[in-house]
């Protein structure tokens, strides 16, 4: 079994994101970038499946600028076998990503495609679902537990009501939740070995896909500053304020 894992390079979750003065986006220059956290869970799960003998190859793929290959290298350092970088410039929306991934799936013919449930930069939560639709494959989103069976996967999903367990046929698309596992650290020797693992670079234009954004971004602005809280003396005052000032009850 072969697993394709899609990873994305995003602004590190510890960085305080700053909006550009002209409202055209956020500052990414000299900002620490990392792998999208749930994508780390996706890689970890693939590696675990391979270690259990149920998968034979893991291919990590990312889409983005030249520097995004760091993200693939990190995936290689924790256990992926080879990497693919599809080079693009500028914003690539979920639909374009899904179309690119479809091309790669057609070429690589994986049995499973893993990725994070959503990216922490745009929070779209769309790519996995769109890819499933255009490939016409089954999908299991928000996976917090995966059990590999003969020709199916048993997947536990994090849903609003609690946990839902479903069974999907292979091939399928799985988007991973942060609760799925605890990603391992890359060790020094593995980081060095990762530098020698194959990393194929493809230009998005070679795939014949139009990655032009379909969404026009009007403006990016910071959320309004939170006002300082007040202390109320008793329940009556609280109820009264919620009713008359905040007007929420």
């Amino acid at each position: 079994m072969k697993i394709l894992v899609a990873v994305k390079r995003v602004i590190d979750y510890n960085v305080q994101v700053r909006v550009k003065e002209d409202g055209s986006g956020v500052v990414t220059e000299n900002v620490k970038m990392s792998t999208n956290p749930p994508d780390d869970n996706a890689i970890e799960e693939a590696v675990k499946i391979k270690e259990s003998g149920k998968a034979t190859e893991i291919v990590a793929i990312t889409i983005g600028e030249e520097k995004a290959q760091e993200t693939v290298r990190k995936a290689l350092a924790v256990g992926a076998d080879r990497g693919i970088l599809v080079k693009t410039n500028g914003v690539v929306e979920p639909l374009a990503v899904a179309k690119i991934l479809k091309k790669i799936v057609e070429k690589e013919k994986p049995d499973l495609v893993f990725m994070g449930k959503q990216a922490i930069d745009d929070d779209c939560n769309q790519t996995g679902q769109m890819l499933a639709a255009i490939l016409n494959w089954p999908q299991a989103t928000f996976a917090s537990k995966i059990n590999v069976k003969e020709k199916t996967l048993e997947v536990t999903r994090e849903v609003d009501e609690g946990l839902e367990t479903i069974e999907v046929n292979i091939p399928s698309i799985i988007t991973c939740d942060l609760r799925l596992n605890e990603p391992r650290y890359a060790s020094l020797p593995n980081i060095m070995k990762a530098k020698k693992k194959p990393l194929e670079q493809i230009d998005a234009s070679e795939l014949g896909i139009d990655t032009k954004p379909r969404i026009e971004q009007v403006k990016v602005e910071e959320p309004p500053k939170r006002k300082a809280g007040i202390k109320v003396a008793n329940v009556e005052e609280l109820v009264q304020k919620l009713k008359n000032e905040a007007k929420v009850i």
Binding site: E182, P183, R184, Y185, S187, L188, P189
Partner: peptide, 9 residues
Amino acid sequence: QKDSYQPGM
């Protein structure tokens, strides 16, 4: 040691 334990080198 946690599950993710990785000894130093």
